[in-house]
Simulated scan of single mutants.
Amino acid sequence: MSIIDSLLAFTFAATLLTLTPGLDTALILRTAAVEGRKEAFKAQMGINTGCLIWGAMVAFGLGALVAVSELAYSILKYCGAAYLCWLGIMMLLRPRGSLAGAERLETKAQNGFIRGMFGNVLNPKVGIFYVSFLPQFIPHGQPLIAWTFGLVFIHLLLGTCWSIALISATRPLSAFLRREKVIRWMDRCTGMVFLLFATRLALSKR
């Protein structure tokens, strides 16, 4: 896969994943509706910071694994493929009917930035997702750490743009994204994408 193809494929996949309603979306919507736009923007900056922290851990840890051991790389690859496959199957067979769980994001912290950051940093699924997802879009022979951070920044840019849209149109988008049919449809679409990426990752070569 060429560099342009990798960037286009990742941008498409990350856009779909960003638009799929999840806990980050729920946090932004709730914060904007209840605490105002300022706190919602703080929450988004916190989410970005959490993703950057995980991105750094993945970039340096993954780089060390790839450099040291072919076996470690293969284990990482197949574990990532299995994780994506499991997520995809669960989303296809058991799509959510609501954004239940958003309330669990509420902590004693009153600052939106803190809530957003710890909502990601304390969620190991974010790290596992980065490990299993990002390597598929790094062209062979390219610097792993630089590319990992580059892809993370694309993800952050997409997430920020989506959050700005959510914050700017909180009421109509909130009602739309909380519809049971919309959540189920987005979950199933994302599940199919996960299964395709799991197959691609399992069949890929170093």
Rank of each mutant, 00 (worst) to 15 (best):
A67I: 12
S69F: 10
E70S: 15
A72L: 14
S74A: 15
I75H: 05
L76A: 10
Y78E: 08
G80M: 09
L84D: 03
L84Y: 08
C85Q: 08
W86C: 11
L87I: 10
I89V: 15
I89T: 12
M90G: 09
L93D: 10
L93T: 14
L93Y: 11
R96P: 09
L99C: 05
A100P: 08
R104Y: 10
R104M: 13
L105R: 04
E106A: 07
K108N: 11
G112H: 09
G116K: 00
G116D: 02
M117H: 03
G119A: 09
G119W: 01
N120C: 12
V121F: 02
L122D: 00
L122F: 03
N123Y: 10
P124Y: 06
G127A: 01
I128M: 15
Y130M: 15
V131C: 11
V131I: 15
S132V: 10
F133C: 08
Q136F: 07
Q136S: 09
I138E: 05
P139V: 04
H140G: 10
H140E: 14
Q142G: 04
Q142P: 01
I145T: 05
G150N: 08
G150M: 00
F153T: 12
L156M: 10
L158D: 07
T160R: 04
C161M: 05
W162H: 13
A165Y: 04
A165Q: 04
I167P: 01
